[in-house]
Every structure is written in structure tokens, then in C-alpha cells.
Design a protein around this nucleic acid. Structure first.
Length: 493
RNA sequence: GACCCUGUGGUGCAGAGGCCCAGCACGUCACCCUUUCAAGGUGAAGAUCGAGGGUUCGAAUCCCUCCAGGGUCGCCA
């Protein structure tokens, strides 16, 4: 009885993208739900394309997502000697053969196969070589790759995928794939099996792009005499144009760290990712992380590819609206005490942080009230430093459209605003309950609709045309700042 | 080309033969509330369930064909 072990095995040929993030998430959820071990393995066998920067950014992405691994990161490149050893064993046992065909010869073979309308399957001349002849040529220093000798027996491979169901493939449809290059460096299909065996992986959860590769890997398991793990393949995530997501084509939306940098909550992003290709079978959409772990099942994974919607031209749709919406939900449902530490780094980054806001600090309660009031209309954490800037600093910008709409149309505001400030100055207490009658009385006396003053005041005090209820916001910002801003706005008219 | 997978409103998902003249959410639109709104409330539009054939008393759900999209076929991962 071995315990459940799953792994996420990205190759560091790029940063962590959303598809990878989701694969990692599903592995993590599965492990968490069943008390298994979640392993991280970096597949860096392709030295040409792998680099440390990418590895770092993948780890960063996973950390931000909160997908903590129990073991690793292991680096595939560290096991090369073992991979080579296994390949030599396979060769010795007759499960593989030396493929002496040069690149040119292979290309020729493939062209001939194509011309004959047959798929290329084997390096037939090499495969037909006697062991003695093969040994002799190898000893003579002739370069060769090692290829798996797919049985010629009319049989096939079969496995039951947890998502896609029973999968069968005839040996006659599987080509003799290479295990080792002529320089003895190992290739993907071989390495994955070696490492999954070495790490005693019991369940492989990965992208659907590996579905057909699985048959090759099964062949290796069989040759090795090792019981293969179970498999679950995940549908792919595509771009709105239905093509594969790529940074070149689709830009930053595909990178997990973009979501971090744009003020996403990791739990919200996990929630979004989980819903891309999975559902509990009901209509529930907003999940806390605990609920997600509870509800997650492989059976709920769908087989069709999902599309992540976004638009390069519309900044409000820089990523999927659903993701944004989910973030807003999480932002608004989260206890304020939990939200506060998440907003802190954002404010720090914008130079808006005050240590008095911290838990136990003099202004902590005020800070929580501010977050509570502001978040109803905010979507991401970044909003606190953007449209929310005026609540934390005096050097905020006034939105041009807001100024035109609320301050620019009524010239008499030049007098009305300072007069309002005078009234506020004299108010016995600066609370929303006390402020509202004051403003309304003021507008009555002036014979204008309260809305004119209310909207002008909102823009003067916060720089925005939208925001929380004015009187609550005034109370929050405080008498001194409010009055100063009302007068300053009037001076600029 | 070969092999494999998929196909429910714009998007993400429900739906596992009758409860579906198809549900939820996002988005869109309208209205209400109101001091604003990218907030809240209410409501509307939007799907001949890829197409065509079957099976069945009855199909989005089962079968066949076709079409479309995706994946794999590398001495990439």
C-alpha cells in the first residue's frame, strides 16, 4: 500500500502560464483532498531552452498561488546518469535498439514514408540489425540514438484515463520513439517515466497534450516491469481565437505573475482556474479554498477545451471578466482583518503605507473602515492605490472626466465649495449623520439640488466621480482634509 | 495524411432518455433605488443543445455519418 503521490512537472522554457497554473492547482487539490504528497519537479533536460530565470519565475508563480509543494523542487537534469542507465538496460534486454540513422537518413525515411502515404514508424534498417552487428558498429564509434522497439505483435496499449475514459492504441500506430540522443542525453518520454518511477508517483495529472504520449510511456513501464500510475488528463485552455495560449501571441495575460502584479487575490485566481474545466456538478461558483479542496473531484473535470476570454484593446477586459468578477467577490467576502495585510504591500509599493495602519496601530480601525467602504466598488487590490489613492494621500490626481462632469459645469461652485467647507469646519461633530443635514441645508439655501454639491464634493475630495456614499467617505477622510480639498478644488475652478 | 479527443446562448459551466419549448454565472441591455457608480435590486434579450440520419412512445442525453475545432505523430517538453 503506497500512499498517494502526485507531481507538477513544468519545463522551465518559460514563466508559469495559466494552463500550467491550473495543472498545478488540480494536482495540489487532489493531493490535499486525499492527504497525498504534492511533488514539484522541474523538467530541465533541454538545456538549450531551460534557464534559471524561468525556473525562478515558475516557483514564484506557484508560491503566489499558494500551491505549496511537499517535496522538491527536484531537477530532472540531476538524474541523467540514471536515465542513461535505464535506457542501456532497455537496450540490453531487447526492448530498445540502436538507431544509427543520421538526421539526414531519418528525414529521407520520413519523406519516403510520406510519399508512400504511410506514417514513419521505425528506423527499419537499424531495427533489423543483429545484436553483434549493432555492437560492432557501436564499438567502432559510430553515433547512434537509442529507440524504443515498439512490439510488432499486433497488440496495443490501453489505460483508463480518469477524465477521458478508456484509451486504446495499437502498437502499429506508435512510432519507435527515441530514448537517448546520440550524445546520450535523454528525451522526454523516457525521462518522465524514469522520474515518475523513481519518485513513486501514483497519479499523473497533466495536460491533454500528453494524452497520446501516454501510450509510449506505458510501453516503457511495461518494459521496465513497473506498474504504471493512474492518469488524468486535463482539457486545454485556449485563447479567444481558439489557439493555444502563447506569450508571443497573447501577451502577459497568459502569465500567472501578471495576475499577482495586477492585484489579484490568489484564492480568487485559484477559484477561477478551478472553474476552467471543472465543476462540482452544480451551479456554485464562488469557493473558498477549503470548499474547493472539499468539492474537488476528478469526475467533475470536463473533456472539452476551455477558452479564457480577454481583449487586447479593452483595458477593462485585460483578462477574463469572470476572473475579475470572482476577484471582486473574494475581495468583498473576505474578512477585513484578512484583507488588510494583502492591501499593505500594494500601498507600500505606491508609497502610501503608514505603519499606523498595521494591526495594533493607532489608525488600524480607520484603515479597516476605509477598506470596507472602498472595496464594494473595487475589483483588484491595485485599485486601493489607484482610484483609492485619495483616501491614503493628499497628492492624488483628479480624474479629468470626473472634473468636467462634477466641477466644470457649475461656475458658482467656486463660492459654494468654500462655503460648504466653512459649514463643515463649524460642525459640532464630523460624522456622516451630522454632515448630511448640513450639506442639504446648504444646498437648500443656495437653491440647488443636493446632488450638485454632493457630486462636486466627491470629486473635490477623492478625485473620482464614483465611490462610496459621500457622507461616509467624508467622515472617513476627516474634517481637516475634506475642508482643505474643498477649498483647493474651488481655487482651481 | 495517420491516430486520438472534443462540439449546450459571446464566454465559463449545469444537464448523465421523460422533471428541459434547456438551468446558473459572467458579459450585454433596460428599469428601479439613489448623491455618484464599474455598487445594490428587478427584469429582458440571447441556444432549432455543430449538421444530417437513425434507435425509442419519448433524446441535449444512446448509435451512425459528416462537418468544425483541438491534441499527438521531433535526436522539444
Amino acid at each position: 500500500m503506497t500512499s498517494l503521490r502526485v507531481r507538477f512537472a513544468p519545463s522551465p522554457t518559460g514563466y508559469l502560464h495559466v494552463g500550467g497554473g491550473r495543472t498545478a492547482l488540480f494536482n495540489w487539490l487532489y493531493a490535499r483532498k486525499h492527504g497525498g504528497t504534492f511533488i514539484l519537479r522541474i523538467e530541465d533536460t533541454d538545456k538549450e531552452r531551460s534557464n534559471d530565470t524561468n525556473t525562478k519565475s515558475i516557483l514564484e508563480g506557484l508560491e503566489w498561488l499558494g500551491l505549496h509543494w511537499d517535496e522538491g523542487p527536484y531537477f530532472q537534469s540531476e538524474g541523467i546518469a540514471r536515465h542513461q542507465q535505464v535506457a542501456r538496460e532497455l537496450l540490453a534486454k531487447g526492448w530498445a535498439y540502436r538507431s544509427f540513422a543520421t538526421s539526414e537518413e531519418l528525414e529521407k525515411q520520413r519523406k519516403e514514408a510520406e510519399a508512400a502515404k504511410r506514417p514513419w514508424l521505425r528506423d527499419a534498417p537499424s531495427r533489423a540489425l543483429s545484436i553483434e552487428e549493432s555492437d560492432r558498429r557501436a564499438a567502432a564509434g559510430e553515433p547512434f540514438a537509442i529507440r524504443f522497439k515498439v512490439p510488432d505483435d499486433g497488440g496495443g496499449t490501453r489505460f483508463e484515463d480518469a477524465v477521458y475514459g478508456v484509451q486504446e492504441r495499437k502498437h502499429a500506430d506508435i512510432e519507435d520513439f527515441a530514448l537517448l540522443r546520440p550524445d546520450a542525453t535523454p528525451l522526454y518520454n523516457h525521462v518522465v517515466v524514469c522520474d515518475d518511477v523513481e519518485m513513486r508517483i501514483t497519479f499523473v495529472i497533466r495536460g491533454q497534450d500528453h494524452l497520446s504520449n501516454t501510450h509510449k510511456q506505458l510501453l516503457i513501464y511495461r518494459a521496465l516491469g513497473v506498474e504504471p500510475p493512474r492518469f488524468a488528463h486535463l482539457p486545454l485552455i485556449n485563447a479567444p481565437d481558439r489557439t493555444k495560449l502563447s506569450k508571443r501571441k497573447h501577451g502577459e495575460v497568459v502569465s500567472v505573475t501578471t495576475y499577482r502584479d495586477r492585484g489579484f487575490l490568489p484564492e480568487a485566481f485559484r477559484n477561477f482556474l478551478a472553474l476552467l474545466g471543472w465543476s462540482a456538478g452544480d451551479d456554485k461558483e464562488v469557493y473558498t479554498s477549503e470548499e474547493l479542496v472539499q468539492a474537488f473531484t476528478l469526475e467533475g473535470i470536463s473533456r472539452s477545451n476551455a477558452i479564457i476570454n480577454f481583449s487586447e484593446s479593452d483595458p477593462r477586459m485585460w483578462t477574463d471578466k469572470k476572473a475579475l468578477h470572482l476577484n471582486q467577490e473574494h475581495l468583498n467576502r473576505m474578512p477585513l482583518e484578512e484583507l488588510a495585510p494583502k492591501v499593505e504591500p500594494v500601498l507600500r509599493g505606491a508609497g502610501l503605507w503608514d505603519d499606523a495602519y498595521a494591526a495594533g496601530g493607532a489608525r488600524h480601525d480607520w484603515f479597516l473602515r476605509a477598506l470596507g467602504l472602498l472595496r464594494a466598488r473595487f475589483v483588484t487590490l491595485s485599485d486601493f492605490a489607484g482610484p483609492g489613492r485619495a483616501y491614503f494621500a493628499d497628492d492624488f490626481e483628479t480624474d479629468a472626466a470626473a472634473r468636467d462632469k462634477n466641477l466644470g459645469k457649475e461656475p458658482r461652485l467656486k463660492e459654494w465649495l468654500p462655503a460648504l467647507a466653512d459649514r463643515f469646519e463649524a460642525a459640532p461633530e464630523f460624522t456622516h449623520a451630522a454632515l448630511e443635514p448640513l450639506l442639504r441645508a446648504h444646498s437648500d439655501e443656495l437653491g440647488v439640488k443636493a446632488g450638485v454639491l454632493i457630486n462636486a464634493a466627491r470629486t473635490a475630495v477623492t478625485g473620482q466621480s464614483v465611490g462610496p456614499s459621500l457622507f461616509e467617505l467624508l467622515e472617513l477622510v476627516g474634517r481637516e482634509r475634506v475642508c482643505a480639498r474643498l477649498r483647493a478644488a474651488a481655487r482651481l475652478l
